[in-house]
């Protein structure tokens, strides 16, 4: 019995390790080769970037001879500002929906989470016209507004579920302590939702950072390109400079990777704790 269990456990690990390699190998290959000279990239793709194989040239051309640092800044601005609005407005709306009963509350609640099932992309045609009419074409503001609208439904869904599970008594207690409804939100509710903020943040951030569609359509201009769009266009121009291509890919992976390492606990807890129970 014990031996059988041992064998099956080894078998399970073998399968899981094999899949892990499949998941990691392509990423590793890109990162390793981004640090090599062009010759080395072709001569020995799986070799380590050591000795004369090592070359910083790829990164050099990406970081100094291109607009990459600017794209990076654009992505950072768009992601952070959208995220701020999603979290703030989402938490405010969820607080109202979970705390107060008022005429039409169920309707507004359903209306606001409708966007989970209906992708905002389907309105692209009219959205572009609207953005042009508002004189926002080729601005980061356009992206921020659209991403905020896109991220709100899932944020409101998660926040509302969470806030409904939180005891109402703590808010009543604050009322007895004499706090206004606004101060109850900022001083009591915000600290209460802190555990889910990380979950909502990661859920909202990833699709924004990675999106290609809206940057391509709403803000394709040189000045407003995001990293994702930048990589896409950069690679189109430099197909011959493999080192630069690989370096640009690595640069695009990096922030996501760092964030994932920091937040993976929250993200996975968020998914596994029923945030997405539907």
């Amino acid at each position: 019995m014990l031996i059988r269990e041992r064998i099956s456990s080894v078998g399970i690990h073998l399968i899981l390790i094999a899949y892990s390699l499949l998941a990691l190998f392509p990423l590793g290959l890109v990162v390793i080769n981004s640090l090599k000279s062009k010759k080395a990239i072709f001569r020995d793709p799986v070799g380590m970037p050591i000795g004369d194989a090592f070359s910083w040239k790829g990164y050099d051309s990406v970081l100094t001879n291109s607009d990459f640092p600017m794209y990076f800044g654009n992505s950072l601005i768009v992601t952070c500002v959208s995220l701020f609005f999603i979290l703030l407005f989402g938490a405010m709306a969820s607080h109202a929906l979970s705390e107060y009963r008022f005429r039409g509350d169920t309707f507004i609640g359903l209306y606001l989470i409708l966007g989970i099932m209906v992708p905002i992309r389907l309105g692209t045609v009219a959205l572009l016209q609207l953005i042009v009419d508002l004189n926002l074409a080729n601005t980061l503001t356009a992206l921020i507004l659209v991403y905020t609208a896109q991220g709100l439904p899932i944020a409101i869904f998660i926040f509302t579920e969470f806030l409904r599970s939180v005891s109402r008594e703590i808010k009543d207690s604050a009322r007895i302590d004499g706090l206004s409804e606004y101060r109850i939100f900022f001083e009591v509710v915000i600290p209460l939702v802190r555990p889910v903020i990380a979950t909502v943040a990661v859920f909202s951030m990833i699709p924004i950072w990675n999106d290609l569609w809206f940057p391509l359509i709403l803000s394709p201009g040189d000045e407003t390109r995001t990293v994702t769009l930048g990589v896409q266009q950069f690679i189109g121009q430099y197909t011959v400079n493999w080192g630069a291509v690989l370096a640009s890919l690595s640069v695009a992976i990096l922030p996501v990777l760092i964030m994932y390492i920091i937040f993976s606990k929250h993200l996975i807890r968020g998914i596994t704790s029923g945030a997405v129970k539907g």
Binding site: Y100, F102, I108, L112, G115, A126, L152
Partner: peptide, 23 residues
């Protein structure tokens, strides 16, 4: 209640729901 709901509802309506209906 209006203050809490207005920003989310406004942005969502203008930049998500309206474009879909307009399309």
């Amino acid at each position: 209640i209006f203050v809490f709901l207005a920003p989310a509802t406004f942005i969502y309506t203008v930049f998500a729901i309206y474009p879909i209906i307009e399309s």
